[in-house]
């Protein structure tokens, strides 16, 4: 019977280990399709064959890596957009845009929901940070003259994204339905009322009535969670595409 000593290769444990290693390697290869990026070829593949990373070129001038040129501001704007998207989606699970329920939902979020206060804080401070970072990004691009041809149109897209950032932040301001948000938006939309010729109409369009109420809340909510983020996402795609096509402006 089993008098012969089994060789190490036939050890069942080793066989299982080898099989799992082979399986793991196959899974890894099925996802990444190349080995760990440590050669010129695999490093190029790492950016080329990855849907998220292929926004980047495969190679770049060393001088373009200088952090004191960009201060990462464009990337940070996108980073905060992502943070706000994720935290915003989580907040949507708990929030109902109704004048009778919205405020209580925020209260519950702060007191009942696990880490709800933390989530809300992240969304709030992230939003302020995004406004600041986007503005600083515009200043950086202006002062380094990075809008030079052929990048004129991308600068215009950037200005539109700045406006969208303001609108995103402003539309979200109303949602907690507390005194702060109600009166801030009242003041803000009264500015729209002062538009020459079409002021009252513009304000009516914005808040769906003559004063802030349920109509305004649902309009701001819809703008905030779907219309404006979609518009921003499309413009961000155009913005990145153009940067990718025209190359980095720095380090020339």
């Amino acid at each position: 019977m089993a008098t012969k000593k089994s060789s190490p290769r036939r050890n069942p444990l080793d066989q299982v280990m080898q099989a799992s290693a082979a399986f793991g390697s196959r899974v890894y290869k099925s996802v990444f399709r190349h080995s760990w990026p440590d050669s010129a070829r695999t490093r190029s593949l790492a950016t080329m064959s990855n849907v998220f990373l292929h926004l980047h070129p495969t190679t770049i001038r060393r001088a373009s890596l200088k952090v004191t040129y960009t201060f990462c501001l464009g990337g940070l704007s996108f980073f905060f957009f992502l943070v706000l998207t994720v935290s915003g989606v989580l907040l949507m699970f708990y929030y109902v845009p109704s004048v009778t329920q919205a405020y209580q939902d925020i209260k519950d979020l702060q007191t009942v929901v696990f880490a709800g206060q933390f989530l809300r804080n992240m969304h709030r401070w992230g939003a302020h940070a995004m406004v600041i970072v986007v503005f600083l990004h515009m200043c950086r691009v202006f002062y380094t003259r990075a809008y030079r041809p052929p990048r004129e149109f991308n600068w215009v897209v950037g200005v539109l994204l700045l406006v969208l950032t303001f609108l995103l932040s402003f539309s979200g301001y109303l949602l907690p339905w507390d005194q702060l948000s109600f009166w801030a938006v009242t003041v803000g939309t009264n500015i729209a009322k002062a538009t020459p010729f079409v002021g009252p109409e513009a304000q009516f369009l914005l808040i769906g009535g003559y004063e802030i109420g349920q109509n305004a809340l649902i309009r701001f909510y819809t703008l905030h969670v779907i219309a404006l983020p979609l518009a921003a996402a499309v413009l961000i795609a155009v913005h990145f595409w153009r940067v990718r096509k025209d190359g980095f402006s720095g380090g020339l």
């Binding site: 990026p37 010129a40 490093r43 190029s44 790492a46 950016t47 990373l53 980047h56 070129p57 495969t58 190679t59 770049i60 001038r61 060393r62 001088a63 373009s64 890596l65 952090v67 990462c72």
Partner: peptide
């Protein structure tokens, strides 16, 4: 003067 984006830029 040319470097790969992985890992140089991605690390930053």
């Amino acid at each position: 003067t040319i470097v790969h984006v992985w890992p140089h830029l991605l690390m930053i």
